[in-house]
Design a protein around this nucleic acid. Structure first.
Lengths: 210, 210
DNA sequence: TTCTAATTGTGAAATTTACCACAATGAGGT
DNA sequence: ACCTCATTGTGGTAAATTTCACAATTAGAA
């Protein structure tokens, strides 16, 4: 359907989406690639090229209609529908994500959170989600039609847990475990490794003369 | 000192570091670029090139000494010393980071956490850190020699808070706020935007045939 | 000592990504 | 209807990054 999309493009589209949402709240009707570029420290030409992979959304002389472009990016990113998400592991990160507004507002519905710990099972997070038993995971995934799993378990069991959820039919993983996991290629894994950002920062601070 | 380093290299070094640490715990003495590559799904040549920017750490025919390479990467990344960190904002993310083992183990000492909310100030997180008043922030930063700030405040105040902490002398920021922040170029900002990863995953799931 | 097998370090090629420059287009004014 | 100004969409080029390919080196065996 489309020509090949450079990998960094999807991530930037999500950034554009954020700004467009904000701008539409502020009542802006149109936005130009140069004003977007100024807000995001990106070259206008990059923004135009990114968008042009998916079609011509702009109008010459005027720029882009904020609402229309927002809707178009929603479609491209696949967040025009809602995704059912299960959080696996109710440690600090798992619990923090359990009702993270940024996710809920943008197309992701947290349908549950599971853990192994007897102590945690049954506890309620923010009067809204109750931690369930990992043993119920297959049932939860199948009945609630979970499509995305958020992996927040200890490193040493991560691959095992991943293998299970794949068997139960999950097709996408956001992986917070600091480990490279193996999965069939029809299962998409997106790694989030917070501690890498700290180390990258440290590197830049130490080597800032470069 | 060094030739120009491609931007993705620092992040990969942090990944290599993680594996080396694990391998050294398992008692491995040496490791080759190809075995590292297999573990991380990277081409061995990439690993060798990445390392070669900083010197020749390996021995032909044998590979790399695990401990030595680990120590070398620690130096390169600047985590051979400890960094003093202040968490700004005691919302979900801030509290989750407050004693995140991944950070504490790898060179970052959380020296405090501050918030504006009367309700939160004074509360203790994991019997270990007490949430302090943002009003005390200047004093905290100067007295505890804070070098890195972790920004976990609401979007609308982020730039203002950032401006303050920069005045108080902070030189590095890990920014969890979904917004591009402006700072003088001697202040390093590393963005962590969890919701982008979810959207990138959604994109890949929707466009997986590509 | 000499041979063999393993593995690095690195210039050069290939690939990927970003950027530029400009023709094409649309809106608004005269 | 025509001119002017702003801005897009895009082919081509430049820059950045990855990958290849191979000489150089080391360890160990014969």
């Amino acid at each position: 359907m489309f020509e090949k999309i450079p990998k960094p493009v999807a991530r930037r589209l999500a950034i554009y989406y954020r700004v467009l949402k904000e701008q539409s709240k502020n009542g802006a009707e149109t936005i130009s690639s140069s004003s977007l570029g100024r807000m995001l420290d990106l070259k206008p030409s990059q923004i135009r090229k990114d968008l042009s992979y998916f079609g011509g959304f702009g109008k010459r002389g005027t720029g882009y209609n904020v609402i229309d472009l927002m809707k178009s990016i929603e479609k491209i990113l696949g967040i025009d529908k809602r995704w059912n998400v299960l959080i696996i592991g109710a440690g600090k990160i798992g619990r923090a994500l359990a009702n993270y507004p940024g996710l809920i507002q943008d197309g992701f519905t947290i349908k549950g959170i599971v853990d192994v710990s007897e102590k945690k099972i049954g506890k309620t997070i923010d009067e809204h989600l109750t931690i369930e038993d990992v043993a119920e995971m297959e049932k939860i995934i199948r009945e609630r039609k979970i499509e995305i799993g958020v992996l927040c378990v200890p490193s040493d069991v991560a691959q095992k847990v991943l293998n299970s959820v794949i068997q139960y039919g999950i097709k996408g993983i956001v992986n917070f475990v600091p480990k490279r996991l193996k999965a069939p290629k029809d299962v998409m894994i997106e790694d989030v490794q917070i501690s890498l950002s700290f180390k990258a920062l440290s590197f830049r601070m130490v080597n800032s003369e470069r």
